[in-house]
Design a protein around this nucleic acid. Structure first.
Ligand code: FES
Ligand code: FES
Lengths: 153, 153
DNA sequence: TTGATTTAGGACTAAGATTGTCCTGTTGAT
DNA sequence: ATCAACAGGACAATCTTAGTCCTAAATCAA
C-alpha cells in the first residue's frame, strides 16, 4: 500500500495537536477546519489513532482529543501504520503474502530491502522533528500556520 | 503509486529474457507460459519496455523480444518506472503535485527522502544482480526454474 | 432529567486505479 | 497470399481510496 490521504491527514492532525502544547485538547471540528481536512474523514482516522494509543479522546462538552505522549516520542511510522496498516511496497511484503511467485523469489528480497529503508526513514522521524523542520520553512509557504509551537515537558 | 503486478511481471519477464543469454529471442507466449503471467497483460507490459528501449521487438515468423543491453546494464528502477511511471510514495511526490498542502510542507520533505531511498535501492540493482541472487536460493523454492543462466558478453 | 455536545462505529457510495480481456491492425517471413 | 508475431485501443470486472451519513454512546451542564 502506498501512503494515502488518510495517513497524511493523520500526521497533519497530530501535528496540529502537538503544536498546541502538552495536554491541550482539540476538537475534530477545529482540526478539520484549520488543517482543511474533511471532518468526518478525519474523525474516522482519529478513531484508529485512539485505538493505537497515540491520542486519547474525551467525549461530551469540553471534550476532544489530546496526545498521550510527547511529540518527540511519536514516530511518523507509528502514526502511518496505525492508520494504514503495515507499510508494504508491494503485495509480497504483506503479513500474509498473496503473491504466487513467493518462496524465496529474488525480486521479493529486493522489495523487502526497499521497504525496510522506507520504514527506517519514518521510524527515525518524530512529530517533534517535523515541527522543528516546519520552523525552518518560509512562513508564507508553510502549510500549517494557525498555531505557534509550545513547549512539551 | 505502489509497485503493482505490472511492474513485477515486467521484471520477471525481463529476467526470463536475461537468462536466455545474449541476443536470444523469446515469444510473449513462451514467457507468459514459463513465468505464469497472463499473456495479453504481459504483451501490454512489454509494449512499454519497447518504448523505453529496454527490449527490442521483432514481428512476424521467428520474431519475439530481445534485450537491447546486457542484464548488468538494466536497472530494476528503469524497468519499473518504464512500466508504472515514476515511483512516488505519495501523491505530493509526483511530477505535477496535486496535494493541496504543498509549498514547503514539512511532511513532504520526509516523503521525498523516503522515496529517494527506494529509488536508490532499485537504481542499484540490475537484472544481472537478481539472477545472481536467484542462484543462491534453494532450487525448489526458486520462482523461475525453466532456464539456466547463460553468459552475456 | 433533559438536553446539548462530542466521539464511536457501522453502512454506504462515488470515483479512480488495477488487472486484466478482446478485437482489429501492422509488419515481416516464406 | 498466408501465417506468425507484435501494436494499440477499447472495454470490463474487481479492488482500493476517499469520503458521507446515520445512529448510538458517553459526558457535561442547566
Ligand atoms: S514473490 Fe512476488 S515478486 Fe517475489
Ligand atoms: S504537501 Fe502534501 S504532505 Fe506536504
Amino acid at each position: 500500500m502506498q501512503i494515502t490521504r488518510a495517513g497524511e491527514y493523520g500526521v497533519l492532525g497530530l501535528l496540529h495537536l502537538a503544536r498546541r502544547g502538552p495536554a491541550r485538547m482539540a476538537l475534530i471540528d477545529d482540526i478539520s477546519r484549520d488543517e482543511e481536512i474533511p471532518k468526518s474523514f478525519l474523525a474516522k482516522i482519529f478513531q484508529s489513532l485512539v485505538k493505537a494509543g497515540v491520542v486519547q479522546s474525551y467525549r461530551g462538552t469540553g471534550g476532544g482529543f489530546a496526545l498521550t505522549r510527547k511529540p518527540s516520542d511519536i514516530t511518523v511510522l507509528e502514526v502511518i501504520e496505525a492508520i494504514e496498516g503495515k507499510i508494504a511496497l508491494q503485495r509480497c511484503q504483506l503479513e500474509v503474502p498473496d503473491c504466487e511467485h513467493m518462496e524465496g523469489c529474488a525480486l521479493c528480497g529486493l522489495f523487502e530491502r526497499a521497504q525496510d529503508r522506507v520504514r527506517a526513514v519514518f521510524a527515525g522521524t518524530t512529530l517533534a522533528d517535523l515541527i522543528t523542520t516546519e520552523a525552518t520553512l518560509p512562513a508564507k509557504t508553510r502549510h500549517i500556520r494557525k498555531l505557534q509551537p509550545a513547549a512539551f515537558k
